[in-house]
């Protein structure tokens, strides 16, 4: 466990991002401490995905700063930036497996392409990582299209942990799965995270999953964090936004933007 006052693993300060006239992130501040599992909750279209893509370097924020281990990612470029980004791994919502490659090459992709590991060695590592997420070596030669949604998520998780990242991002890890498979994936995430001792940042609107996989929760609304605290305190937040969201009520300060 980290000492109090240590350097945050990831910190966002006043991050802003807009697409055309639509402001998505409006001065977002967020701190992720080392070893923590933080889940950011929020409704659809509140900017959760955009936030994660800004940290991952897929999108560039219009304003604000992002720090990773005290280094300002938003000021780095070239190789220095690539080195910081190598600390990250991501499990995408739809798993985002490369359908032109067999399962093992998907898992080994970051090792072969990003880190120059030899193919034979990378294949061995891939099979080990598949075993960690409960998949046998027989799955390794299959194509991603032959797998069920739950199995694709497992392969996505194996791919995320393949290069031993510091921080793993989870984008809606349980969306689109049946409740039982969702719970299996939640358990798998918890055991993997414990096993590797990594820091995680997840985004979800599934409160069951959020409570289960997090030790801290932050709530995003209209491009800002409106509440953040330990998961145990979520039911006593005294925050009308949080209360409305966790109870799934249509009544409250959050107004759904429903277009006719």
């Amino acid at each position: 466990m980290p000492a109090p006052g240590s350097v945050p693993k990831v910190e966002l300060r006043g991050v802003k991002k807009r697409f055309g006239d639509k402001v998505v992130l409006d001065g977002l501040d967020l701190v992720l401490q080392p070893g923590h599992s933080l889940v950011v909750i929020g409704g659809s279209g509140t900017g959760k995905s955009v936030m994660i893509k800004c940290v991952l370097g897929i999108l560039r924020p219009d304003a604000g700063q992002i720090f990773v281990d005290g280094q300002e990612l938003t000021r780095l470029s070239g190789r220095a930036r690539d080195e910081v980004l190598k600390k990250f791994a991501m499990l995408f919502q739809g798993a985002a497996l490369f359908d032109s490659l067999p399962v093992w090459e998907n898992v080994a992709f970051g090792l072969i392409q990003g880190r120059g590991v030899a193919r034979a060695k990378a294949k061995d590592i891939a099979i080990q990582k598949l075993a960690k997420v409960g998949l046998g070596a027989d799955v390794a030669m299959l194509s991603p299209a032959e797998l069920s949604g739950g199995m694709q998520k497992r392969v996505g998780l194996a791919r995320a942990i393949a290069a031993d990242p510091d921080i793993i991002f989870f984008d809606e890890p349980t969306t689109g799965l049946d409740p039982i498979m969702a719970d299996v994936i939640n358990d798998l995430i918890i055991s993997t995270v414990k096993d590797l001792g990594v820091t995680t940042l997840s985004i979800t609107h599934d409160m069951v999953s959020a409570r289960k996989i997090s030790d801290h929760i932050a709530m995003l609304y209209k491009g800002k964090i409106v509440w953040a605290g330990p998961t145990a305190e979520i039911d006593h937040s005294d925050n009308p936004f949080v209360d409305q969201f966790i109870h799934g009520s249509a009544e409250g300060p959050i107004k759904m933007e429903v277009r006719a």
Binding site: L56, D82, L85
Partner: peptide
Amino acid sequence: TMRVTEQIDALTTLST
């Protein structure tokens, strides 16, 4: 198809 299924973003996160 790679774009809409986030496979292109996945490439970026795998240092490619």
